[in-house]
């Protein structure tokens, strides 16, 4: 287990270096930072001084090493837009996105898994057909359309939920949470639903097709012959055996949402990372974009690591092969 983690971390370092190179390249060749940071009336002396201060006269490899060394310490420089440290700006936005994504993902799993199992068991029934049509809509209608429809219905017509923002938040020092105040929780409902709808539909369809495969296997047939109760057959033996792809896909969905929930965040004016990213693109705030790239990469690596560890927990065969152990005979 430990060996597996170490192996994955070694891989992660290599991947991160590549991404750092990419981020650095953007940083280096996309626009002139000196021009962007100073006002147009600045003198040539001021420009030279800043160029010197930013280390832009150093050879390119040296600049890259400095970039990586700073990045490791969490220093991605100053945001061009508001002259604050990039890391602080992102750290401030991260909890909003993280809470939104986690709430919608957990809801999606809690709803999508049982729905998928139900649909697999009751194949041609009327309810299942309805669920399939709804899930079709869920997969194909973009989240922002659903978000706008939700705002129309619940904020403008019924006026029960806030249309934008995060509500009141509680500052825990290292983390700001909206989950502890009622206005924060209300504000979370609609963005979470509009994100979760796609996930629910996706997970349900995935579970259904995987379950139909598993239910055809011999060990399910043998479980029936052993006289086990239907619930044990479907959940303990059936669902558990189709969790692997569900874990993979859910991990990817979560990573994807943390990084790119930006459309939903804009619709609901949610102060998260996606919203920040869009703002920084508008202002050509390159340090923020570069840092964002690195952080998204770290998140994906972390999620992949967690997914791998869940594999080992779910499937005993994985542990043996992943660590390179042999089977006992």
């Amino acid at each position: 287990m430990l060996l597996l983690v170490l192996k994955r971390l070694a891989n992660a370092v290599v991947v991160l270096l590549f991404v750092a190179l990419l981020a650095f390249t953007i940083f280096k060749f996309l626009g002139d930072p000196v021009q962007l940071m100073l006002n147009p009336q600045a003198t040539q002396e001021e420009r030279d001084a800043l160029t010197q201060r930013l280390g832009l006269n150093d050879p390119v490899p040296v600049q890259f090493v400095k970039f990586v060394a700073n990045a490791v310490q969490g220093d991605f420089g100053m945001s061009y837009r508001n002259q604050l440290p990039v890391m602080g700006v992102i750290a401030e936005r991260f909890p909003a996105t993280f809470e939104l994504v986690m709430v919608s993902s957990i809801a999606a799993l809690l709803i999508g898994l049982p729905l998928g199992v139900f649909a697999a068991i009751n194949g041609g029934s009327f309810m299942v057909r309805v669920a399939h049509i709804i899930s079709m809509i869920g997969v194909s209608v973009p989240a922002f359309v659903i978000g706008i429809l939700l705002i129309l219905a619940f904020s403008i017509e019924l006026q029960v939920l806030p249309a934008f923002g995060r509500g009141e938040v509680v500052d825990l020092g290292f983390w700001t949470t909206g989950l502890l105040t009622s206005s924060g929780r209300y504000a979370l409902i609609m963005p979470a639903i509009s994100l979760a709808l796609f996930q629910i539909s996706f997970i349900m369809r995935l579970v259904t097709s995987e379950m139909l495969e598993v239910l055809r296997t011999d060990f399910i047939r043998f479980a029936r012959a052993r006289g086990l109760r239907a619930r044990a057959i479907y959940f303990r033996h059936g669902l558990r055996n189709c969790l692997m792809p569900v874990v993979t896909i859910t991990g990817m969905l979560i990573g994807d949402l943390i990084a790119f929930a930006l459309v939903t965040e804009i619709v609901f004016q949610w102060p998260g990372m996606g919203f920040l990213f869009v703002q920084s693109v508008q202002y050509v705030d390159i340090p923020v974009m570069a840092a964002y790239l690195m952080i998204v990469c770290c998140i994906f690596i972390l999620i992949n690591l967690i997914t791998d560890l869940i594999y080992v927990v779910v499937d005993p065969r994985m542990g043996a092969t992943a660590i390179g152990g042999s089977n006992v005979r």
Partner: peptide, 24 residues
């Protein structure tokens, strides 16, 4: 019938490699 299966009438299938739940 479900209560009878495994209790009064049991079964053994052809392929022992696939008759057992691999995750349990």
């Amino acid at each position: 019938m479900r209560k009878l299966r495994g209790r009064s009438i049991a079964a053994i299938f052809q392929d022992p490699l696939t008759s057992l739940d691999p995750l349990m």
